[in-house]
Design a protein around this nucleic acid. Structure first.
Length: 272
DNA sequence: GGCCGTGTTGTTAA
DNA sequence: TTTAACAACACGGC
């Protein structure tokens, strides 16, 4: 569920609540969600001050003292909340850090348990991501670079947008919305996209993501911000999960197909 | 009760 | 090299 706009919403919430606060020793109820050594994770994050909270694609970065950074990925159903540290552990609560000087704790819950944590030196984060081919931020990449990174292959443009090595942060919802904004059929092989249509994808990407961040993301089933608010972008969706409903531009019924194993929504008339 | 689908990503196979 | 399939897991809906 959480893509770049939802993660950005969470990060902004966390930044306001955590910056300059000290984490107590974490209570790790499900060590298997920690990809680095859990014992070390527990020991090294204990009693550290949070310097800042940042985002890279869909990754959340908790920058701590002593050149330490916690990388957190929500995957599909992960969520953070600030709760009373003594509140009973829910079925899907997997870890928490009590906060020094308060009764509260930063708690992580995840029904499907796909979410992951990892601790590393702050100075190694960019290297770690780069080694995995992680692409640039949509708001930082230059247009020419973006157009080049889409490549010349046969794969559909939607698959390229979902590929975090092209740009980081786009998932199924925003890929569909971006291609509607760009008026391009999601099945179009990238090699058939010339400069004009690549330009439209670039503009659409920035426009949709900007508006979605402004709306604090999209909530269809799960997503809530740190304050428990649902994202308002659900009301602005043009095609996603609107199969059979009229296209906002021309009134044609929104079509749904399977692409790269994912539900894909588009207007057959507006998107070519 | 069983099957299908779900917004992510890493690994494996083709 | 590139891309498709699948697994990780839990739940709701039919």
């Amino acid at each position: 569920m959480p893509e770049l706009p939802e993660v950005e919403t969470v990060v902004r919430g966390l930044r306001g609540k955590l910056r300059r606060r000290r984490l107590r020793r974490p209570e790790i109820w499900r060590p298997d969600i920690i990809e680095s050594d859990p014992a070390e994770f527990e020991r090294l994050t204990a009693e550290r001050v949070v310097l800042d909270v940042a985002r890279r694609g869909k990754w959340i970065l908790l920058h701590l003292e002593a050149d330490l950074t916690v990388l957190a990925h929500l995957r599909m159903t992960g969520r953070f909340a600030l709760v009373e540290a003594s509140a009973p552990r829910g079925t899907h609560d997997h870890l928490q850090w009590p906060l020094a000087g308060t009764r509260r704790a930063l708690r992580f819950a995840d029904t499907r348990r796909f979410g992951r944590f990892r601790l590393m030196n702050t100075s190694q984060v960019e290297r770690y991501l780069a080694d995995r081919g992680f692409g640039p931020e949509p708001f930082e990449v230059a247009e020419a670079e973006f157009a080049r990174r889409l490549g010349q292959g046969l794969r559909p443009i939607k698959s390229a947008l979902l590929d975090q090595r092209v740009v980081s942060g786009i998932g199924n919802i925003y890929a569909d919305e971006i291609l509607f904004a760009a008026r391009i059929d999601p099945r179009t092989p990238v090699r058939r996209l010339g400069p004009r249509r690549r330009h439209r994808v670039y503009v659409g990407m920035r426009e949709i993501l900007r508006r979605a961040i402004l709306a604090e993301g999209t909530s269809l089933v799960n997503f809530v911000s740190l304050e428990g608010r649902r994202g308002a972008f659900a009301a602005e969706l043009a095609v996603f999960r609107r199969t059979g409903q009229p296209c906002p531009r021309c009134g044609t019924r929104v079509a749904r197909v399977k692409l790269a194993g994912r539900s894909t929504h588009f207007c057959r008339r507006c998107q070519r």
